[in-house]
Amino acid sequence: MLSSLLSIFIVSALFNNVIMAQFLGTCPFLGVSKSIETASGMGFAVIFVMVLANIITYFVQLLLIWAKVEYLQTLAFILVIAGLVQMVEIMLKKLSPGLYKSLGIYLPLITTNCAVLGIALLAIKKNYGLLESVVYSFATAFGFLVAIVLFAGIREQMKYSTIPRAMEGFPIALITTGIMALAFMGFAGFKLPF
């Protein structure tokens, strides 16, 4: 049991990293990675939202199955997630105005962060139970945090280098991500000892 949870954690955080292997959540990844501080803020917000979203959607799915309307899954999930994000936004505004200010426009955009909806849908698709689903979402969000903080670190360094004019902004960010993804592919060679 524990080893299967641990393997879910390692596989989803590193081997199958949301950004580097699954392309989920690329918009905030490119958008809020200019400094390590905002990147980690975004990362923690995603961890919080993603785990909560997975817990809630687990029960929503049970409800949908009970009412025999599974085809409403996408609609129901996105509404629940949108409501949740709104709540997190209000809480953050009250509790940490500084962080709220720096995350700015991107907090409402967690709603359209495909990673949150994507992971909720994937957890259902993989037939995970509640505990597995929580571990899975936490691991995935943790993988997001690791990736975005590493990337923000590289971007902070990049400020001091001269980049060809045509490569400034998105192109160099995408190519850097590509090289990082190449590095993350190295994890695929590992074999879990359990």
């Binding site: 045509a166 400034e168 998105f170 192109p171 995408l174 190519i175 590509g178 993804a181 993350f184 592919m185």
Partner: peptide, 25 residues
């Protein structure tokens, strides 16, 4: 195979965007 995998996606899009910027500049 790399071009079908994740790194290929990022690098291709990055290079295409750079090319467009270059022409635009």
């Amino acid at each position: 195979i790399l071009m079908i995998l994740a790194p290929g996606a990022f690098i291709t899009l990055g290079l295409v965007l750079a090319g467009i910027n270059f022409i635009q500049n």
